[in-house]
Amino acid sequence: MKEFDLNNIFTDVSITGNKNDALKKMAELFAHENGIDAKALVQGFEAREKESTTGFGNGVAIPHAKINGLQQPVVGIVTFTQPIEWESLDEEPVEIAIALIMPLDDPNKEHLTVLSKLARKLMDDEFIKDLQNGRHDAKKLYEVVTNAIEFKA
């Protein structure tokens, strides 16, 4: 098992509703795939969004949550058929959400290093363009992200 794999990429997910509906759907998908409690996950996502939006612009958001008892971080991607209003910094709706699900107390610096590299990469216009171009194709998204960040197998 590693932090990021194809099973955690869901493309063209149809959401009727708003950001909270999208977060709920994302929590269900990742909870099921990774054996996480869906309720704890959606609460974590919502709490973080209340602090400040994770929609950082260019149609991309990075909802994150810390989960008690999780063994290692999970990075997952959901793309939406219809853009979701996310109260983003640039006020544009979100088509791609990258979820960062962290163990509550994670002393493992390698995990954090991986996530910080991903965060830095999000400021790279080319990377965002590649994500946008790949948003209907899970394999393509997997390639774009793994080429940018080395995940541990």
């Binding site: 973080r48 994770t54 810390k66 962290m102 954090l112 996530l115 965060a119 830095r120 400021m123 790279d124």
Partner: peptide
């Protein structure tokens, strides 16, 4: 940032850019 996971590094990268 508060969580110290994402925005700390995004902000750093954008300032450098």
């Amino acid at each position: 940032c508060i969580a110290g996971i994402a925005h700390t590094y995004m902000a750093a990268e954008n300032l450098k850019k």
